[in-house]
Amino acid sequence: MITLNSVSKRWGRNEVLRDIDLTIEEGRVISMLGPNGSGKSTLIKCILNLVRPNSGTITVNGIPSTSVESRKDISYMPQVARFAENISAIRLIQLISDIRGVDADPTQLIEYFNLEGHMSKKLGVLSGGSRQKVSAVLAFLFDSPIIILDEPTVGLDPVSRVNFKRLVLEEKERGKTIFFTSHIMSDVEEVADEIAFLLEGKIVYQGKPEELIKSTNQPNLEQSIAHLLKAEA
């Protein structure tokens, strides 16, 4: 469970997050939506302690996010996966295993994403999609109770996308908490139990996607969101 308690963050004069209260419950898949610059990345960085809020507190399973311990329960998949140029994917996985002190076997995940032929190639020569998949392997490898994914399906081919979403649902079945951002509404509708809609640093909606569609009287999530944006403007 991740709890954000009146979290605010300013970059100079620019208020990126304004007094955010958000609870991400255990065992749920929550998708964070919002236009570019609405503060999604900053919010994720706050949870991971890459960015420190000016005020408010964040706890991860009861541990403050400022503590190193809090990140033991989190796996993170960044938006862009340009980690290194001249080293193989398997070495990268080895590195992260080493520093997490977890000796996990990636074979199954590698097979799942059809990466067998790519693991010993330099990361620099892999396609964007393949790198994204390596990043996904890293996110799911350590059996962390919380998985944070930043635009995970961008750049994946349709088959991989289907596979990826299936994996998310499987992990959810195993009791994982999954928090992800996405621009692809169909993906959100398929896998998210809940959505949090962020606009100009504020959460303007949190709840089930079906309920949002219903309350806005729109045919699908995409149009509900568009409706919501228009209303706010």
């Binding site: 991971l48 890459l50 340009r82």
Partner: peptide, 9 residues
């Protein structure tokens, strides 16, 4: 890569 490392415990 830096973000990935910083996100580790």
């Amino acid at each position: 890569f830096l973000f990935l490392l910083l996100a580790q415990p």
